[in-house]
Write a protein that binds this DNA or RNA. Sequence first.
DNA 1: TGATCCCGCCAACGT
DNA 2: ACGTTGGCGGGATCA
Length: 840
Amino acid sequence: RSVLKTPLKQAATSPSVLAEIQPDCQPLTTPPKPKETPPVEPWTPTSNLKMLISAASPEIRSREQRRELSNNTSEVLQAKHCLQEHLSGDEYEKSQPSRKEKSLGLLCHKFLARYPDYPSTAENNYICLDEVAEELNVERRRIYDIVNVLESLHMVSRLAKNRYAWHGRHNLSKTLQALKKVGEKNKYTQQIQLIKKREYEREFDLDGERNEEMARSSGSTKHSEMCFVELPGMEFRAASVNSRKDKSLRVMSQKFVMLFLVSTPQIVSLEVAAKILIGEEQLEDLDKSKFKTKIRRLYDIANVLSSLELIKKVHVTEERGRKPAFKWTGPEILPNIPDTKLEPTSTTCPSPISEFIPSKEQCSKNLFPSRGKQNFTRHPSLIKLVKSIENDRRKVQSAPTSPVKISASTDQNLSAFPSKMPQVPAITKQQMEGQSKKEKEMKMKLSRSALECNLSLPQAVPKPEAPRSAAPSQQPALSQPLGVCPPGHSSVSPVILPHPHSGVSYAIYLHPSQAHTVTTFSPSFMVQPLPHANVTGIKSMNPKLLNRITTEEGDKQIATDEPIKSFTAEEKPPIKSETSSKRCLKRSQALQENNLIKRYRSDEESLDTSLTFFSSGYLIPLTQCTHSSKAGFPNKEKAGLCSLQHTTYNSPIAGVIPVTGSELKAVNIPAFQITPLNIMLSPTSIAAAPVLSNSCLNSSNTSSAQNPSSSVLNFTLQHIGLIPAGVQVPANPFLQHVPVSSQPENVNHSSESTNLQEEKVDENILQLLNCAGLNRKHGAVIPPSVPKETQEPQTVTENFFRTPGGPNTVSSLPANSDGTDRISQGTLYIPQRKLEVSED
DNA sequence: TGATCCCGCCAACGT
DNA sequence: ACGTTGGCGGGATCA
């Protein structure tokens, strides 16, 4: 076999070409399973190079391929390399086998090249694993690795044995949003901090006392980690095909992504990720082997995520040394987006875990994904499925084999309780509710001990019920009432503004009421966050932890330049010195207090069903159907009272941060400053804002299940032939810029947003605290500076919205210089830590 | 060396 | 029983 064969190349290329050609159009052709090309040869290095290049920039991709590889430097170099090898001899063996050429990343590129990022509707985009493996000339095992992570992002979904449906990036944004929510729910941010803190402590040999404490607490919280069991959802939905146990890769991948989405500098080191993915630190170094294995898996995942251009490898240099890490390079996700739900019909990913989704919904979903052919055939059966779904669910739940569980995955760490408790599937809301009370009680009890750790995770199942006891964790973010809102406004909607160059994104919380205005505003404004100077410091936070991030690109600015402004908040004196135990006590107290408060608050909660998390831990984007919703409680005071407290104690770092609910109250949430700048809001965000703003709160309940109908509708229409497959009636949130309408969907969003907000607030608080702590350490408050360069907002926007339809762009919005005023309150995320990041 | 991570054994599942 | 999935970790490569 001589080395270079182009044949492979062709194989690889051809598909990509197709994709290119029919980018979004109709991918009817899909799986070219071209056997035409001789599968025999492995690709040549050259081909690989091409692939890489193409992968590098999707846009260019197709063209690139056709053209010669001349351009890239890297390419050239590689080419040379190849040549040399070839020249050297026929020992192609050497040349070929370079490990790199066989890397998962490369393979993934090749794989991705075969399919369009945005395939037209479901149609034929199916993937036959055997074929792919053959064409790419790799063992199937490898393909699984790729597919599994793609599946975690809902870019593909399993149809049947050996078959997957390709969804491309249509669902990506939704998925990411969902993941982010869950990540927030799980308090990954805090977990990360905790881990870092521990590390730091360890370094210093902080007394064992604390370590033990920490470990213990953490351990308790975390052990739940792996619990995930099968997800009921999966089962039924895929009907025949699903795979079962989703264990790690898929779930791991999602969690990994969540970490990026929730962390401020969106950089996550493998080490931290591994720890979190493992059951949290468990006993400190529990099994090194386990840790090692986790890392290995993370590399696999990271490789594919890198191929997707969602992350990129960097190195973080800390005091300790250089650690491998990855930086998120994917789209920023707007937390709030009014996502209307996910689910454009097209995608239909069969989400394994859709939690509450009513069976019907699921069915519809399932249907969608498939390609047309099957749909027809299936249709009838599907119907049946629908009917039986509920039964199935029950079965599933009860089924011995499938542990129904739940929560584990996502929340894994959190629950202090025995894993089982939390694991109730969302589906059984009612049950849950019933349980919830019990749980609450238990939690309350446990809370003291457990809370310290505060890692508690929110559980998957949302329960809208009322007064939640202390365990905030349990409440799904969804259900939670908004957090901190400045008085008067119940909901704040955070918007994240991506900062392209810096890579840092800012989140702005807007009051709903203001949201409108925002939209109208000029697209660009800057927000600067300011931490309270005084917020209680975190004693544990170590300055060391802070790192500087320097990336070659312009990322550097992130840390340093971040302008930080101080808001007016008055805060309370830091409690730093408290011992952990004391803190705990405080917390518990706080919790109690919170409880009281909580009572008042009603939860609107459950509305946002847009995503659901399944027990298995696998997230699936759903359309929102809110079954769950119970009627919302009157939100009475939510606005006024902020749920802050409750969040507060949750934080994992709690021990570290001694803030009580009362304290929080005292503190004003800093209002953001928005200076007019270049930053533009993405259209999406804008669009979202209005929705949120409106009203929603009140009506939240009402809304409810509309989505399903939309999906169903689409489905139906498509099948009937009224609509082309690609067309979907309901839209994707992005696509649709829904005017603030009275639509029920909106309502849901609002509720969702609310929750998010709360979460965010919490995070923000933590961050602020951190900042404060830092400041203290440094003794200086960081002056707010204005970010200098701003990039083109537009670019950012593009990233966010790839929607073909070209949404109304924000640009149309009138710019408002004084936007600042309008957005009075909010919180901003600022990366507080400084790290040195070196790109690889 | 330590960071990466390919390779493929082999168990859990599905059919 | 056999095929499909995919956890897992030894050990080869790379840097």
